[in-house]
Design a protein around this nucleic acid. Structure first.
Length: 217
DNA sequence: ATCCCGAGGG
DNA sequence: CCCTCTGGAT
């Protein structure tokens, strides 16, 4: 199957079966989403959702977080991965929000990426989820699933995957396709032993094609 | 032992 | 490009 067909089948399937896909991180405003996404690096959303309620109660906005100490923030997030780094990032991020962005979460990726703890992936999440822009955040799931499905080929870096997906996906589907790929990767196309037996989209999957149909090639 | 919605620094 | 950060689930 040609790559163009894979994209068409991909969009057709998920726009039909999961037209309302969204993040599983709990949040109620852009500030909370930014904090949650920073925390989510190398950690499950489920665990992030366990620590954010108390964190948001103590630090409900950028001003309160900016005036907090790294040590106190740490006590709220000690059960997530890299709590020392993330506590430092969160306080630094909040301070920069206050100093350069009037305490508001900026809209542009080039501004978001200046914030401590915010890399390209997090910036793209905020850009697409909060501001509904056609940005593709490539995390471990998007990277793996795109390559397996055959939406990307010979993509060895997240940036390469991002560029190919943005180029080939219909513009209005880029933001939601991010969630389609993540949810599929989280529950079906898992890293270690992909559950091809219960996967509904093997009919256009390159990985299934090469690993299950003609194992010779 | 490997993976989870990575980022920063060398 | 590499390495480090480094908790919890499987």
């Amino acid at each position: 199957m040609l790559k163009k067909q894979r994209y068409e089948e991909f969009v057709k399937y998920f726009s039909t079966h999961n037209p309302d896909a969204q993040t599983e991180l709990n949040y109620s405003n852009p500030y909370e989403l930014l904090v949650a996404v920073i925390l989510s690096a190398q950690c499950t959303d489920k665990r992030i959702n366990q620590v954010t309620p108390r964190l948001f109660e103590r630090f409900p906005d950028a001003p309160s977080l900016a005036s907090g100490t790294v040590d106190e923030v740490f006590t709220y997030i000690r059960s997530v991965s890299y709590p020392n780094n993330k506590a430092k990032h969160l306080v630094g991020m909040a301070n920069k929000l206050m100093e350069e962005f009037q305490g508001k979460v900026p809209e542009k990726v080039e501004d978001l990426i200046k914030l401590p703890g915010v890399g390209r992936k997090t910036a793209n999440v905020i850009s697409s989820v909060v501001y509904n822009k056609p940005a593709m955040a490539v995390d471990t799931h998007v990277f793996r699933v795109s390559n397996r499905l055959g939406l990307t080929s010979r993509a060895t870096t997240p940036l390469a995957v991002e560029k190919q997906l943005v180029k080939h996906l219909p513009k209005e589907t880029i933001a939601i396709a991010h969630h389609w790929l993540i949810l599929h990767g989280r529950y079906i196309c898992v890293a270690r032993r992909p559950k091809c037996e219960e996967c509904p989209i093997t009919y256009f999957c390159k990985y299934f094609e090469t690993h299950y149909l003609n194992k010779k090639s």
